[in-house]
Simulated assay, not measured.
Amino acid sequence: MAFHTTLFGLVLVMVPDIFDQPSWAGFRSLGVTEAMLGWLMLVLGSARIGGLVVNGARKHVTPLIRQVSAAIGCMIWFGIVYGFASSGVVSTWLAIYPLFGIGELVNIHRAAHDQGETRNGKAA
């Protein structure tokens, strides 16, 4: 999901008039530009990749990093769903981005479970 966020941001930065398309009208109404949203997603996605690298390099896992980044990812993907839904155009976004948001909820749950095991020991 970190790479999806980063690449989505990259597309927004590289295609400056993407919000002019009808399916992106909801994003225009939010008062953000392609560049603003693109750079935000690039920074957050890159930070999440960095956090996952740190998490993987440590002997003891840091589930809090995963929880926070998944929570931010959840807000991003459901925000994107809101932007597309606000456009009134039904497209393939409906089959993709809501599932990304739900996937982030699963990631939050799994990281919270890992944090519980780290704090309390493995459950039998």
Rank of each mutant, 00 (worst) to 15 (best):
V13D: 08
A25K: 03
A123M: 08
S69T: 12
E117L: 08
V43K: 06
V32S: 05
W39G: 06
G31N: 06
G73P: 00
G83S: 01
L10F: 13
M36D: 08
S91G: 14
L105C: 14
A35S: 15
V90C: 10
L44W: 03
Q21W: 11
M14G: 04
L52D: 13
E34D: 11
A2R: 05
L64E: 15
N55E: 12
D17L: 02
L105H: 12
I108H: 08
V54W: 12
I76T: 09
E34K: 01
N120T: 06
A111V: 01
G45E: 09
L12C: 02
K122N: 07
E104P: 01
V54C: 10
V68L: 13
G101P: 08
R66H: 11
G51P: 00
H109N: 01
P98D: 06
V106I: 15
R48N: 14
L64F: 15
S69K: 02
A95M: 09
G103Q: 06
W24G: 03
G101S: 15
V68Q: 06
G116A: 09
M36E: 11
W77L: 04
G50E: 01
R110I: 04
W77P: 02
L30S: 10
A123V: 10
S69D: 12
W77E: 10
E104D: 13
G103D: 08
V89N: 13
I80P: 03
S86Q: 08
R110P: 00
I65S: 14
F8Y: 10
S29Y: 02
W24E: 10
V61P: 15
A85M: 03
A25G: 04
A95P: 00
I80D: 07
L105E: 08
S46Q: 08
H113G: 00
L105Q: 07
A71G: 09
G79T: 01
L52M: 03
A25E: 12
K122H: 14
M41T: 01
A95H: 11
T62L: 11
S46I: 06
A25V: 03
N55Q: 04
T33A: 13
S29A: 09
G121N: 08
D20G: 15
M41Q: 05
A47G: 06
D20N: 14
T5R: 07
V54H: 10
A2T: 07
V13E: 08
H109Y: 07
N55K: 02
F19T: 14
Q21I: 04
G50T: 00
G26Y: 02
M36C: 04
G103A: 05
G88H: 07
A2L: 08
V15H: 11
A123N: 11
M36S: 10
